[in-house]
Design a binder for these strands. Structure first.
Lengths: 259, 259
DNA sequence: TTGTCATTTGTCAGTGGCTGTCACTAGCCT
DNA sequence: AGGCTAGTGACAGCCACTGACAAATGACAA
């Protein structure tokens, strides 16, 4: 009902993608769209000269759509929210919504994808001498901060955390989220294999290591969402604690409860 | 086009569920529907006196729908197959299809669920003295056989294997399958916690152990689907080999490739 | 300023998954 | 036989999503 397109401020960090895409799709993220040469001269290493009116307007629309969608999802539930409602809240046509997002799902998972891209970037920056799991561990722990900041630039953090819980509790969203997780695991597995100089299709260890890590991260996330403390500090501690439990969980004999 | 309801023979092992359900849903599988007391006298421990004409007819319809659905999915792809086509192939109304399956997805994942229920049963039967991961390991390896047999009773095994590949390569199905996997992991985690006399919400080890296991199983399954040899023997070997790689994958220093 | 061009948007029409309703038929029970 | 109930078909309708085309609008040059 409220919030028309005029919801200025807070420039989303999203890339200027085609209908479907959002923050960092499967693509390496370093690939700037080569076709849409706005004001920027090609080949120039400069960052962002200035978006131009058209671009800014698009950004605002996308931003408004995202925010309206999330707020509606959170207030009345994902399934009970229709695309028409979202479009109407921003005062654009339903068709326009689909030009910015591949579907309802895509909008709901937007922030997740933002977070994921940060994690992947963090993994990329880990020094090669670290053991695989060590690198992954440090990458998550470290990225919790940057993720928080990046999200703040688009929507209030609190909105994101509530969205996370919504995803976990909405079957359709959870399914989509898990599929996405698998895609990321595949990507990370390739990164690890590369670090170690291995062929990912010949040596199962990269995929297995990543699968183990991913599994633990999912358990961690769920536990975090279920708990009270939704702060960045809490998730970091949980992450570390759970990763430390992998060894014990694989042990022959389980001792008494950890704490 | 072919195959009307008269596709007799091969009685499916499915339970007589409501619109949505299929083989073994979340329920413990030992719970026989208490409401639908057909010919069987209540309280009698006997297995199946005999279905009755009505029941048999239903079974045949469900079976025919399942088979038609899978065959259409495999021949023209999941997305390109409409529910109307499936219904028409069996010569029932579209509405009837939805009375047997919660949706297209449900039909496509039917066999998976059959397999899952066998695995869960196998875990339940593991002696309590085995270490958690040991029990899980033995449960899968052992259940590969019973799963194969159970599926043969409904459709030719080969159909199932092709369906598995289809699931892996169809985004919508993969997503649903992964979500289902998570549900199962939760269930297994509870079983493990029970075996060890632990509170699943107080001690993270059960969930972590199961998540690790599940992750490896998923990688295994994917590898199996990608390969040539789709026999039961192949999957068993792969499973064992991959589970053996968990230790090495978690090690500080990765040695040279395993083989 | 004005004309041209490319992009963005709205409108319309249509497909397909899925659900509620209701009357009808066919097994089942006494 | 006759009543009861479960299974089915025929509609009608909601909603996510897509293709096509025309109108609106920013970008840019004359």
């Amino acid at each position: 009902m409220t919030e028309t397109v005029d919801t200025a401020g807070t420039a989303a960090a999203a890339s200027a993608g085609e209908p479907a895409r959002a923050p960092g799709t499967t693509e390496p993220a370093g690939t700037a769209a080569p076709g849409t040469a706005g004001t920027a001269a090609p080949g120039e290493p400069k960052a962002a000269p200035r978006p131009g009116l058209r671009e800014r307007k698009k950004q605002r629309t996308r931003d408004a759509l995202l925010r309206a969608a999330l707020e509606l999802f959170l207030s009345q539930g994902y399934e009970r929210t229709t695309v028409d409602e979202i479009a109407e809240a921003v005062d654009v046509s339903q068709r326009t919504f689909f030009r910015y997002f591949a579907g309802k799902e895509d909008a709901a998972l937007f922030l997740q994808r933002l977070a994921e891209s940060h994690f992947i970037a963090a993994v990329r920056e880990r020094p090669a001498h670290e053991a695989p799991l060590e690198a992954l561990r440090r990458a998550v722990l470290e990225s919790w901060d940057t993720i928080g900041e990046a999200i703040e630039e688009v929507v209030p953090i609190e909105l994101h955390m509530r969205t996370y819980r919504l995803i976990e509790s909405t079957p359709a969203l959870l399914a989509a989220h898990l599929r996405r997780s698998e895609e990321i695991e595949e990507e990370i597995a390739h990164l690890i294999a590369e670090r170690e100089g291995l062929d990912v299709d010949r040596d199962p260890r990269p995929r297995i290591a990543v699968a183990v890590f991913g599994g633990v991260m999912r358990v961690t996330g769920r536990q975090w969402g279920a708990g009270e403390d939704t702060g960045v500090e809490a998730i970091r501690e949980l992450t570390a604690a759970y990763l430390d439990q992998v060894g014990p969980a694989l042990a022959e004999k389980w001792g008494p409860a950890p704490r």
